[in-house]
């Protein structure tokens, strides 16, 4: 009996954890979308006020944001150092970012549209495009928030309850 109880608890714990993990990814997606907007805001400041060169701006910005954004920035700078054009380096960095993150492919579309432009036009044009991309990211963030609100609890309950149901069936 004791063994069954322990087994049941492990099962509920495992499925519950799975549900919580899915719910956490929903929250992380929102947080990352906010950090990416922060990245663009920092870039706007560096381009508009400090007139920092783009690779240096990326390094500075990466250091002040989360590790995932920092990794993205470092990846772009590394590709530039290898002699890649900025558009290719930017796209390459975004692909790596999506692969290891809770982001959905559509989330980085606003950033991908920046690839052929970023760093390569005058400051007025840069600001216009960066602000537009920021706005698109904000829209994605609102959608992600709605999805998280709707599904976060659902996944948590689903995890725990599916464990309990399985235990009951097995008993």
């Amino acid at each position: 009996m004791k063994l069954r109880l322990v087994g049941g608890l492990i099962l509920v714990f495992a499925t519950g954890n799975l549900g919580f993990a899915v719910a956490r990814r929903l929250r992380e997606r929102v947080a990352l979308l906010i950090r990416l907007q922060g990245l663009l805001q920092f870039l706007i400041t560096e381009i508009d006020f400090a007139v920092t060169l783009f690779p240096e701006a990326l390094i500075k910005v990466g250091e002040s944001l989360g590790s995932d954004v920092n990794m993205f920035c470092n990846q772009v700078v590394k590709s530039l150092d290898l002699g890649l054009p900025l558009s290719a380096a930017w796209e390459h960095g975004l692909t790596s970012l999506v692969n290891d993150s809770p982001l959905q492919p559509g989330d980085i579309r606003p950033l991908l549209t920046l690839a052929p432009i970023i760093g390569l036009t005058d400051s007025k044009d840069q600001l216009r495009h960066l602000k537009l991309a920021q706005e698109h990211l904000r829209q994605r963030q609102l959608e992600a928030e709605q999805e998280a609100d709707k599904n976060q609890k659902l996944w948590c309950y689903l995890g725990v309850l599916s464990g309990l149901v399985t235990v009951l069936i097995l008993i």
Binding site: I47, V51, T52, L53, F54, P55, L80, G83, P85, L86, G119, L120, T121, D122, S123, D125, Q126
Partner: peptide
């Protein structure tokens, strides 16, 4: 040519206005 301009401006044309 575009690539060379990128390299020369360090991908920062806005800083070379």
């Amino acid at each position: 040519m575009e690539q060379t301009v990128q390299f020369v401006t360090r991908s920062s044309i806005y800083a070379c206005e």
